[in-house]
Design a protein around this nucleic acid. Structure first.
Length: 1014
RNA sequence: GCUCAGAUGGUGGAACUGGUAGACACGCAGGACUUAAAAUCCUGUUCCCGUUAAAGGAGUGCGGGUUCGAUUCCCGCUCUGAGUACCA
């Protein structure tokens, strides 16, 4: 052989390894350049031919940058925590660490023989304790931080505690849980340590709270939103259901806006940025409050008298129902007090369980405007809502006094006297019908909707709330109860898929209740419908049928009014028209305005009235961070009671314990529940005793990959995740190459952690990956053979059975294709058969025939240029050993289809085989030559010969006919120099814009030219 | 439905800023070498018409437009791929 690729490649690969040619230092006179590949999960199947595509491109670019005088960091490692190793462990009992190690060795061997210029001294493995120590450390930093919306960054939790101590919760604007409490500095100081911790947990960037999670019973774990597709798990395709669980979460929503803004400053493919934008899903709109209004049932309306009808008219029905119920279910204390207060024993008329505006007061004297509340009754709840109630009622002109159950029971006389005293001193209440509440008051007693089109507010003709909405039960009037319940049952039965299939239809049910239009005070019916999602916005929408197609459908179906609000709206009898053009009509103070003005005016007016405000809504949810799995990073947390505490930093890494099996415990706890002594106990130098059981869930797959590029900068450091100097020098990734499938997972989480690490001062750059390229997916290219079934025995002398079982008939692609398309006239087919099988093989040819063709996958490795190797095929499928092959032009041509690469389709091409046959350089060159880097394309080994021939031709430029190395010191000719310089320039230009395929072809042209000149 | 990307020979693809469409390679056809095959080398290869050679016509998914000139820019449509989805 002339071109000995094996010898050449072995020689140089050994040289690079022995001399550590690609080891790079963290300091240099040269400018830095950081080229990163998405590190692989080392699966058992090893690399297939699609994996190295991106690695080859990045390797070419790294080598190019080195030649251009840069100090290039080009590392590689393994994302080695993950589900498959654990699933395998469950089946076989083999420790995932063992499987992982084996797989890594395979990967390493495969990567090495492709000849990459990685600096292996910096290798990382996310499952290595020396690595995950720092993943846990970052978790601790997140736990100890909160997001201050004033400074727009994360800050240490101590700064929040300091604020609480100074001013209580006042003036703090933070991204936190919805249910944070309001309290004064004095309140804070009076809190127990535990109460303080509970409150702080609502602010921490990683926190524990009960949340609805995607639970996958088959995998026995929760999944993040990006790990669920159409209601099934991305890995394995198991069904996923919603479940409430105590879970660790990451407050990524704090960074929603920065994650969105940052996209403008980075050089990423537009589709990828678009995916992230959609995932974050920012919508600018407004929150509008619709207060509730009664169902005007005739009986009630006529008898209501001003002095006594103190309830918000909206709520009369509902509140009345509740009042009655409360009276039936009254507490001992309430009954006692009622005995003392009833029948004007105090000299004043007292009412019991009476509706006031949107509340129900335990006892009330309407004349004096005094409300007496007994804690522990219907409204038994936390201090916060009591305070809110009191404030709201005060504003409505009522005085509120409050007694506890104990007080009423043990000191009934004193309590009664106190009430009488109060009644005697109070002036009569002024009856003011126009009372209204300001924003935030009477929470839960109005329906809040989120809308991006406040401008259409006068087109609202009904409200729709999600069937799961918390107000549904309270809003449903007795007459509509059956209907609503039936509808809820019906929607619950519907699966995700059904819902999607029904996307074009709408259904719903009327609650029987009404809300008040914030501007006109008109009554607006409240419906429930499953096209409104509980999880987005407030779970309630204002329906504007003239401006929204779904609302229009709903209105049409249930005969609700459709009000035109813009003169530009067209065809409202056929559709909803969401236009923003034209001027407003039927819209009171918005009439005549244009879209922009109308929006601004509407929002301003809502804010004036306290009925709403401008609001930005995000689709992005906080990321669930716990997995009920073994093979992941342990969470460095122990529990004292129900409260989580961090372990001491000096105890990192918290090493994954050994377990006897990798399954959940009998009581349903995660596998770590099986570990012995999984318990923390530590005495600090100051004498503090830390003790409790460790967290049982582990971190999700994306934890380790959310910061790994920093570890490469200083992989051996055991004092820091990377030294300040190293981070100072390398800063960020200049070029990142990887698949677009990580758009809403890894790439978003990494940006989030990076921003956090920047906020708390550990890293420098706001964005981690300056330029990103998605290499296209390599699809599989399957080959097929076609088996012909005859419906009669007339074709061959052998009988039918024989034909079918012992002599299968396989026809070449173009014949099969014509048969399938019905383009094969019987006489022509007869001729083909006769030619190939012999005239005497045929009996009389039937006039009517129907031929059935079955296509079968055939291993692409025994097909060359779509021509089947018959001998290899007979080995591959022994059942076809004695088959008859009907050829075309003397060959059996296989059919072709592009599919996903998978074993079952026999279309997997292993790089090892290619390297064995042609060498690594041919593989690398061919993968690049296949087409543009970013384009998805099927792997097709056809044509690899051309690249191989080119390499040989190139080699021959420097070798004589006897294959001896021969170059001369002669001056090159002008023509030779011209060819050389042309190629230098072209390759440079092409590589700069990652057009590697064209630079390969330029080099081919150059070699052709030089060969001609030789 | 929405968003994004794309559509060029038998195939993968090239044409970078509007300036000779089809580079480079595969495949195919013919030829040389060989007893033969493989390998290698040479020639041809967008389509149509035509041919000794030529000459001509059409052509970058479809229909329009801007321009001296359009694969490239604009408008409308068709199809393919990807993402996403009752997101208010």
């Amino acid at each position: 052989m002339d071109y000995q690729f094996r010898e050449i490649e072995n020689k140089w690969q050994r040289f690079w390894a022995e001399n550590q040619t690609y080891k790079v230092k963290n300091s240099s006179d040269k400018p830095k350049y950081y080229v990163l590949d998405m590190f692989p999960y080392p699966s058992g199947a090893g690399l297939h031919v699609g994996h190295p595509l991106g690695y080859i491109a990045s390797d070419i670019y790294s080598r190019y940058k080195r030649l251009k005088g840069f100090n290039v960091l080009h590392p590689m490692g393994y994302d080695s925590f993950g589900l498959p190793a654990e699933q395998y462990a469950i089946q076989t009992g083999q420790h995932p660490a063992v499987t992982t190690e084996e797989n890594i060795n395979t990967y390493r061997r495969q990567l090495d023989q492709i000849g990459f210029s990685f600096d292996w001294s910096r290798e990382v493995r996310t499952s290595d304790p020396g690595y995950y120590k720092w993943t846990q450390w970052i978790f601790m930093k997140l736990f100890n931080s909160w997001y201050n919306q004033e400074s727009e960054k994360a800050e240490p939790i101590d700064t929040l505690i300091a604020k609480f101590e100074r001013n209580g919760s006042e003036g703090i604007i933070a991204v936190a849980d919805d249910e944070v409490n309001t309290f004064s500095a004095a309140d804070w100081k009076s809190f127990t340590e535990e109460e303080k911790q509970v409150e702080l947990l609502k602010y921490r960037l990683t926190y524990l709270r009960e949340s609805t999670v995607n639970w996958c019973p088959a995998l026995g774990t929760v999944l993040a939103n990006d790990e669920v597709k159409d209601g099934f798990s991305e890995r394995g395709g198991f069904p996923v259901e919603q479940k409430k669980m105590m879970q660790w979460s990451m407050r990524i929503t704090a960074y929603a806006d920065r994650l969105l803004q940052g996209l403008n400053d980075i050089d990423w493919p537009e589709p990828l940025k678009e995916m992230q934008r959609n995932w974050i899903g920012k919508s600018v709109g407004a929150l509008v409050r619709f207060s509730l209004t009664p169902n005007p049932s005739p009986g009630e309306r006529g008898t209501a008298e001003t002095g006594y009808k103190t309830a918000d008219p909206a709520l009369w029905d509902i509140l009345k129902t509740h009042s009655r119920q409360n009276r039936k279910e009254s507490t001992v204390a309430e009954d006692l007090l009622w005995q003392a207060l009833r029948n004007s024993q105090t000299g004043f008329k007292i009412r019991r369980q009476h509706a006031i505006h949107t509340y129900i007061a335990d006892f009330i004297c309407l004349k004096k405007g005094l409300i007496i509340e007994v804690d522990g009754g219907y409204h038994a709840s936390n201090k916060e809502s009591d305070t809110l109630r009191t404030e709201a009622l005060n504003r409505l002109g009522f005085e509120v006094i409050r007694f506890s159950n104990e007080e009423v029971i043990s000191k009934t006389i004193e309590v009664t006297n106190a009430i009488r005293g109060k009644l005697e001193t109070l002036p009569d209440r002024k009856i003011d019908e126009t009372v209204s509440l300001s924003p935030g008051e009477g929470r839960g007693e109005a329906i809040e909707v989120f809308t991006t089109r406040v401008d259409t507010i006068f087109g609202v003709t009904f409200l729709v709330i999600a069937p799961e909405h918390e107000l549904v039960e309270r809003l449903t009037t007795p007459e509509h109860k059956d209907e609503i319940e039936a509808y809820i049952i019906q929607t619950k039965k519907k699966s995700e898929l059904d819902r999607m299939a029904d996307a074009k239809t709408v259904s719903g049910a009327f609650t029987g209740s009404y809300a008040l239009h914030p501007f006109t005070g008109e009554q607006i019916p409240i419906w429930i419908a499953d096209y409104v999602l509980a999880g987005y916005g407030t779970g309630a929408v204002m329906a504007v049928p003239s401006g929204d197609q779904r609302d229009w459908l709903f209105a049409t179906q249930y005969h609700l009014p459709i009000v035109q609000i813009l003169d530009a709206q067209k065809d409202l009898d056929k559709q909803g028209d969401p236009t923003k053009e034209g001027r407003y009509v039927n819209s009171h103070f918005l009439d005549g305005l244009k879209y922009k003005e109308a929006t601004a005016v509407a929002v301003a007016k809502l804010e004036d009235l306290g009925k709403g405000k401008a609001k930005v809504n995000y689709r992005l949810r906080d990321a669930i961070f716990g997995r009920q799995r073994y093979w992941g990073e342990p969470v460095p947390v122990y529990f004292k009671g129900d409260l989580p505490h961090l372990i001491d930093e000096s105890d990192l890494p918290l090493v994954l314990p050994e377990v006897d099996a990798y399954l959940p415990t009998e009581s349903g706890e995660p596998p770590l529940g099986r570990a012995e002594d999984w318990h923390y106990s530590k005495v600090l130098p100051d004498g503090a005793h830390l003790e409790g059981s460790y967290e049982l869930s582990t971190m999700p797959g994306w934890a380790g990959s959310s910061w790994y590029w920093y570890r490469y900068m200083d992989a051996q450091n055991d004092q820091e995740f990377a030294s300040k100097e190293a981070i100072e020098y390398w800063k960020d990734v200049d070029l990142y190459i990887g698949g677009s499938e990580h758009a809403t997972g890894h790439l978003l989480y990494s940006r989030f952690w990076n921003k956090f690490l920047k906020d708390v001062g550990y890293v420098i750059e706001e964005e981690p990956f300056k330029k990103l390229i998605n290499q296209g997916m390599i699809q599989g290219r399957s080959n097929f053979v076609y088996r012909l079934f005859l419906d009669s025995a007339h074709y061959l002398k052998d009988n039918f059975e024989l034909v079918q079982k012992e002599k299968p008939l396989l026809v070449s692609f173009n014949i099969a294709d014509r048969i399938l398309k019905g383009q094969m006239p019987p006489h022509e087919f007869k001729e083909i058969l006769a030619n190939q099988l012999g005239e005497d093989a045929l009996l009389e040819f039937p006039i009517r025939t129907s031929l059935m063709v079955q296509h079968l996958h055939v291993d692409v490795n025994i097909v060359e240029n779509d021509v089947l190797n018959l001998e290899k095929f007979k080995n591959f499928r022994p059942e076809f050993a004695n088959a008859e092959f009907i050829l075309e032009s003397g060959k059996y041509i296989c059919g072709v289809e592009v599919e996903k690469m998978s074993k079952s389709k026999f279309n997997v091409v292993n790089p090892d085989d290619i390297i064995e046959r042609y060498g690594a350089d041919t593989l690398r060159l061919y993968e690049m030559f296949l087409g543009p880097l970013e384009q998805s394309k099927p792997w097709n080994t056809n044509g690899i010969e051309g690249v191989f021939k080119f390499l040989r031709k190139f080699w021959k430029l420097f070798h004589d006919d006897q294959f001896n190395f021969r170059v001369s010191d002669q001056e090159p000719t002008k023509a030779e120099l011209k060819a050389l310089h042309k190629i230098i320039r072209q390759v440079e230009e092409d590589v700069e814009r990652f057009s590697v395929n064209t630079s390969v072809s330029s080099v081919m042209i150059c070699v052709n030219e030089l060969t001609d000149l030789k």
